[in-house]
Nucleic acid binder design. Structure first.
Length: 321
DNA sequence: CATCGATGTTGAG
DNA sequence: TCAACCTCGATGG
């Protein structure tokens, strides 16, 4: 269940360990057999994320486009190294076995390693055997397996997984708003500011609209609005332009932090005991997200929650007045 | 063990 | 507006 930062980290993992290699593509689950056959054996040329979408570019103008949606995840195994930024952030992305290979789940850096925690016994045994050899046997419903001579990536549960050609890729990209990791910094900001200024839609919905800005999900939405002290129902066009610019720049900041740490760090402004306490609780490390009824960390007013477009929106009615 | 809900999107009605 | 998609961790009995 990633927001944009996770997908950028996945793209980086593909760049580090798969780009430049011929890739054997299969669909152990069978549901993507035809698509896998199209890319099977081709060299991976590039891996890029735009918002929550991942584009793997193969030879012959062939792209694999993946959107993880709500449940999707990539599992990497083989000679996958934990990069320095992950290690320094205390991330537990991968677990090294005796032979120096790593099995890591790439939903985000804090996810459990190697296998779901509640594997059936038979699956645990299979996994144990699999780690000893390479490649490991696929576990569960693997939509796509991408395999090089020393690394493997398993995709499960994606919302979207398609083989595309350049014109299709262009069409997808055309529908996406700016991504601070992709677009030129000021160009992205100008696009975002200009779009928001035309919309009467509440800013709380605009931030979730991938055609307005790419990569923001429900957590970052709530946290960005709190950090900016903006009332979520405010129409976009009613916001003062400097505030909209600040929103964009804060998204740029949080996204870069997220990509480097693998965590949705939104309380970097906290210090001392409050920060430690927040980090100690994995489920309560944000300003307002998932904190309905709890006292605002700034003013102690109970955090409010409502459904907006089918998603839970959290905010402090006092700080974000 | 059964049930629920989730960091998301699409398409039907 | 809402169900479907599809997976798994959290929760409760």
């Amino acid at each position: 269940m990633p927001e944009g930062h996770s997908v950028h980290r996945i793209a980086r993992q593909f760049r580090l360990h798969f780009v430049g290699q011929p890739v054997a593509a299969t669909s152990p689950q069978g549901r993507f057999a035809a698509g896998a056959a199209e890319i099977d054996g081709r060299i991976l040329l590039d891996a890029r994320a735009v918002g929550k979408q991942l584009f793997l570019e193969f030879e012959n103008d062939t792209y694999l486009r993946v959107h993880l949606g709500m449940y999707g995840a990539w599992d990497f195994a083989g000679d996958i190294t934990v990069d320095a930024t992950v290690a320094s952030a205390g991330g537990r992305m991968g677990q090294t076995n005796q032979r120096g290979t790593v099995v890591g789940r790439f939903e985000d850096s804090l996810a459990s390693i190697g296998a779901p925690r509640r594997l059936r016994m038979a699956e645990s045994e299979r996994l144990g055997e699999a780690i000893e050899g390479f490649p490991p046997a696929p576990i569960g419903q693997v939509r796509v397996r991408l395999l090089t001579h020393n690394a493997v990536a398993d995709l499960r549960g994606p919302t979207a997984c398609d083989v595309l050609h350049p014109e299709d890729v262009a069409a997808v990209l055309a529908k996406l708003g700016p991504d601070p990791m992709v677009d030129d910094r000021s160009a992205g900001e100008e696009r975002f500011v200009a779009t928001v200024a035309t919309k009467s839609t509440p800013i709380g919905l605009l931030l979730m609209d991938q055609s307005v800005v790419s990569g923001i999900g429900n957590v970052y939405r709530a946290e960005l609005l709190f950090r900016a002290r903006i009332e979520p129902h405010t129409p976009g066009k009613a916001l003062a332009e400097p505030h909209v610019r600040d929103l964009w720049r804060d998204w740029d900041t949080l996204l870069h932090i997220g990509v480097e740490t693998g965590q949705m760090m939104t309380m970097d402004g906290l210090t001392g005991d409050a920060y430690e306490a927040a980090l100690a609780s994995r489920d309560d490390r944000h300003w307002v997200y998932h904190r309905e009824g709890k006292p605002c960390r700034v003013c102690s007013t109970p955090i409010r929650r409502e459904f907006a477009a089918g998603r839970k929106l959290y905010w402090c009615p006092s700080c974000q007045a």
